[in-house]
């Protein structure tokens, strides 16, 4: 099962949606791993004929099924980073009315959303649907370094080595949740890490 029910949280924590087909002549879909299922859920021949689909499999085997949807353009990227230049190129020439669909991990959706916002679409107009990994992209508030794929709380900052607790406070601009030193008021007293949603 690729869908996960996130617990209710504070107002800065993103609430991911469910993709739906919207009117428009041009559609850009960026999907990662199990995000393929969300695309399969909404795909129609008419929609896919107007869609540029960028897919990052991350070891999953959805590629053939996605190609069978016959998107107008299909690109399989080995990673989000490798796909980034292409995403920017596509956005550079796009016109108002473009529909954007993001689906996969929070990290990928957050970063791709930033690219789309940078060219002037409001975040409220970008559709998202979470699928797959619930790991978080975390920013250390102290050293500013980003640690990817964080699954436990507290965790060790990959840059400065401090033990950080995982907040639900989220920055769209950084596409990251905030990590804060867990033992700041009692150095060395670091609780045993456990899963973020345990």
């Amino acid at each position: 099962m690729s869908k996960f029910e996130f617990p209710k949280s504070i107002a800065s924590r993103p609430v991911w949606g469910t993709l739906e087909v919207r009117p428009g002549e041009h559609h850009l879909m960026i999907a990662e791993a199990e995000g393929a299922e969300a695309i399969l859920d909404i795909a129609t021949p008419d929609l896919m004929a107007k869609t540029h689909l960028i897919y990052i499999p991350k070891g999953t085997d959805y590629v053939e099924r996605l190609q069978a949807l016959k998107p107008a353009q299909f690109y399989e990227g080995p990673s989000y980073e490798a796909s980034l230049q292409r995403i920017r190129r596509v956005l550079e020439d796009a016109h108002m009315g473009l529909q954007v669909y993001l689906t996969g991990s929070e990290s990928m959706m957050g970063q791709a959303m930033n690219e789309v916002m940078a060219v002037g679409l409001p975040h409220t107009a970008i559709q998202t649907e979470h699928r797959g990994s619930v790991a978080r992209r975390m920013q250390c508030v102290h050293c500013k370094g980003i640690t990817e794929d964080v699954e436990v709380d507290p965790f060790v900052c990959a840059h400065c080595g401090l033990n950080l607790f995982v907040r639900d406070h989220y920055s769209r601009r950084l596409a990251a949740y905030q990590g804060v030193r867990v033992d700041a008021e009692d150095h060395g007293n670091v609780p045993e890490p456990k899963g973020i949603y345990e």
Binding site: I10, A11, S12, R13, R167, H169, S171, R172
Partner: peptide, 11 residues
Amino acid sequence: IGMNFFEWHAP
């Protein structure tokens, strides 16, 4: 920076 009124007050 970049957050709306409800978001930056979320905590």
